[in-house]
């Protein structure tokens, strides 16, 4: 049990400290790296409470894909320059009210969540009784997700699809004058349309373009 406690406090301290560092560090790329560290320690916490499927999915989806794209975008933008412009110029005052509204909302949400939270020692008993049954975490999740909660599952899938289509529509633009490679056209080219054999007479030559 003591090893459990040591691991729990190590991972939770790392999670909290890196979450603070995400907002505190000056370099945006460092922030993303701290965010990744946060995700990893949270997934370790998931694994510790026996939710190994959630922990692994967290690693694969958030760390393996989402954070990579995040990092990709942050590295491409010249964020440092933009930030200086914001803080130096008059533009910053326009963004402050929006930020304030969002942060107060999140603050009250956190208060509501913490207010409703109780420490229950019985949770350990439930955990132990769960681990004694032979059904693995993944099986039980699948059995619930695809039977009782199938509609919720489908709706969340639809929301993701809509978001994806929206993102594609927003960024899609047809550029003119672009040369595209058509594999079918290349492969289906015949000798007759590509090569022409000509009799070349001396001192007269051949007219190539017509």
């Amino acid at each position: 049990m003591i090893a459990h406690a040591i691991f729990f406090y190590t991972f939770s301290i790392i999670a909290v400290v890196s979450a603070i560092m995400v907002t505190a560090s000056k370099n945006t790329v460092h922030s993303v790296f701290f965010l990744i560290l946060d995700f990893i320690s949270i997934s370790c916490l998931f694994i510790m409470i026996g939710a190994e499927f959630l922990g692994m999915i967290m690693l694969i989806v958030y760390v393996g894909a989402v954070a990579v794209l995040f990092l990709f975008v942050v590295m491409m933008l010249n964020v440092a320059q933009q930030k200086n412009q914001w803080f130096a110029g008059q533009q910053s005052s326009r963004h402050i009210p929006v930020g304030l509204i969002i942060s107060t909302l999140i603050f009250f949400e956190i208060i509501i969540v913490i207010g409703g939270w109780k420490y229950k020692p019985e949770i350990f008993d439930i955990n132990n009784s769960l681990s004694q049954t032979s059904i693995s975490n993944t099986h039980s999740l699948g059995q619930i997700l695809y039977t009782d909660y199938i509609h919720v599952f489908q709706i969340s899938g639809m929301i993701l699809l809509v978001a994806m289509v929206g993102a594609i529509v927003l960024t899609f633009r047809q550029r003119s004058g672009l040369k595209r490679q058509s594999y079918i056209k290349q492969i289906s080219r015949e000798r007759a349309e590509g090569v022409e054999v000509l009799e070349v007479q001396s001192n007269k030559g051949v007219k190539i373009d017509d």
Partner: peptide, 23 residues
């Protein structure tokens, strides 16, 4: 229990070494 997911997760984390080195 989730061996294959673990393998997949670790191999998808492999990109970080490259991104970190390059940046």
């Amino acid at each position: 229990n989730v061996g294959i997911l673990y393998l997949f997760a670790v191999s998808s984390l492999g990109v970080y070494g490259i991104i970190m080195g390059g940046w």
